[in-house]
Amino acid sequence: MDEHISLSDMEAFLDEALPHEQMAEIEAALRSEEELQLVLVETISRRDTGIHSLGEIWRRHRASCSSREELGSYLLAILPADQQAYIDFHLKTVGCRYCQANLEDLREAATAGEDTTRRRQRYFESSAGYLQR
């Protein structure tokens, strides 16, 4: 377990942008750690007053995320070694949830079956009424 939670981590926590293991750690810590609760409140207050950080902007705009095509190449392990290593770092050390989700999607794309079709039909039927007529 990571023994530190940085202010950047708290901002990412609010944006649901940390790896799920760390999200769960912070949720658990917030139940008992008063100091951490205050850090969270201060983080929210800073946002309410319009203050934003470089880290938030980097994350929000996914400045270092790889393209979907690059993630596909990463899965096939056909990228240059240093780029392959960087994407591995971004996924596992930085723990980018958006790239992790894209990678999982790419992995499962080949096995999409009836369940996927049913799900998409459900989404369409529940939302099509909101399309402009």
């Binding site: 999200m23 992790q100 999607d105 996927t116 989404y123």
Partner: peptide, 12 residues
Amino acid sequence: YDSRLLAYVSCR
């Protein structure tokens, strides 16, 4: 987009 969104949500 549905599969990548579902992957993003499902882990939580």
